[in-house]
Amino acid sequence: MPSPSSPPRAHGPTTSREQPPSIRRAPPSRCSRVNCRPADSAAPDQLPSGNMIVCVAVVGHQNNPLYLQSFTEADDALKLHHVVHCSLDVIDERVNNPKRSAPTLNETFLGLLYPTENYKVYGYLTNTKVKFLMVTTDLDVKDADARNFFRKFHAAYVDAVSNPFHVPGKKIASRSFGARVSTIVKSFGSGTVG
């Protein structure tokens, strides 16, 4: 039954219909008002729809999970982790057979990895072979937004691993990293526009 995933799906298209790209590029004051209203007025039940990213992950160079966090109220964490897990194979494939993605050769941003009916998975692979993954329910994400998100996410990661108490290759336990990531996730699709 697709019951856990249907609420965000139902909200996703409606919000995107309310804000077509032309309106998103409207003057900042109007833009922010449009985006803020759902979060301010009806926060409890509309939170999942404003929060278009449902899961983020950082995976080390040996495919060891460094950070895995889902942002849904529904009990579908396992499903999201499965989606993340499957996407790792797609990254491996992209990197080892670069012919198929010739224009984006060696770029850190890998683009859309793995579209399913409910989710889209975007990937990012750093020079140090650390993989960043983002699962979103928004089915029309702009590449620039995703890129921007990963840039901030990567910056947060770099700051977290620069902590002398962080052990390389171990899970990131830093609470401030978690807080920073959830801020970035929340700003995705609202703060980044305009």
């Binding site: 060696n106 770029e107 850190t108 750093t126 020079n127 650390v130 770099v158 691993v161 390389p168």
Partner: peptide
Amino acid sequence: FQVGHQLSERYTMERPRFT
């Protein structure tokens, strides 16, 4: 080693992967 490990992560942030 630890310092180099951390710095390389930071300084390679904005560049494409090395071939």
